Computed example of a mutant assay.
Amino acid sequence: MRFLLPIVMLLLSACSNLPVAIKEAPSPDWQLSQVATQAEQHKGDSIRWGGQVVKVENDDNGSTIHVVQFPLNSFGRPDSDGVSQGRFLIHSDSFIDPYIYKAGTLITVAGIVKNKETVTIDKKSMSLPVVTATQLYRWSKNDYSRDPYWRGHPYYYDPFAYGPYYGPGLRPSWRYYDGYYW
């Protein structure tokens, strides 16, 4: 029984490295679709949004991150398989390294709605909400929530795959799916 305590403590602290602003949504939890149409009315409101980085622009005034929004799961991690509500911009006074926050990186931002800015995407002009970042969190690719075992994927881990439980030629085939060999 004594050996269970460290395991329980480890499991309870699994998400404790996340900042509180990323783990917990502000109240009220404004969604991008609500703010995008009326950004002037939501100026100064706290938000928590996430998505996938499109690009990072740096200049003398700071950095701007272009993000495609995706819905957040219960940990505050963007679900890139979800339906996007559009795009938004994150402004930071500090330098954001485009190598670390390269295109395709999943991020979650907690911040304040600043204003709207018109940007050109391909040949179309769009007016996007701008968020001043108070907390920015970059998600790792090895995050367990992307593991197919936790997502109920059909190629889940088989604990009997290496034992004598399968006869000759009956072992499961290994497949590469979603970044994992199964």
Rank of each mutant, 00 (worst) to 15 (best):
P6H: 01
P6W: 00
I7A: 15
M9G: 04
L10S: 13
L10N: 13
L12H: 00
S13P: 00
A14S: 10
N17V: 09
N17R: 07
P19D: 12
V20N: 01
V20I: 13
I22D: 12
I22N: 12
I22A: 14
E24P: 03
D29C: 13
S33M: 03
Q34M: 10
V35Q: 02
V35R: 10
V35M: 05
A36S: 11
T37N: 02
A39E: 06
E40C: 08
K43V: 10
I47R: 08
I47W: 05
R48E: 01
W49T: 07
G51P: 00
G51R: 00
V54C: 06
V54M: 06
K55E: 15
K55F: 09
K55N: 14
V56P: 12
V56L: 07
E57A: 02
N58W: 09
D60W: 02
N61Q: 03
V67F: 02
Q69C: 12
Q69T: 05
F70Q: 09
F70N: 05
L72Y: 13
F75Q: 15
G76L: 14
G76W: 10
P78T: 03
G82K: 13
V83M: 10
Q85W: 00
R87S: 14
R87I: 07
F88Q: 06
L89Y: 05
L89Q: 09
I90D: 09
S94N: 05
F95T: 07
I96L: 05
I96H: 03
D97W: 00
D97F: 00
D97S: 05
Y101S: 10
K102F: 15
K102S: 15
K102L: 15
A103I: 08
T108L: 14
A110D: 12
V113D: 08
K114W: 10
N115L: 11
K116Q: 12
E117V: 08
I121A: 13
K123N: 15
K124W: 10
K124H: 13
M126F: 10
L128W: 11
V130F: 01
T132Y: 10
A133K: 05
R138D: 07
W139E: 14
S140L: 08
K141S: 08
N142S: 09
N142D: 00
D143T: 12
D143N: 15
R146E: 14
D147R: 07
D147E: 03
W150L: 06
R151I: 04
Y157Q: 14
D158G: 11
P159F: 02
F160W: 00
G163P: 06
P164F: 05
Y166T: 00
G167Q: 04
P168N: 08
G169C: 04
G169T: 07
P172F: 00
W174G: 04
Y177W: 03
Y181G: 01
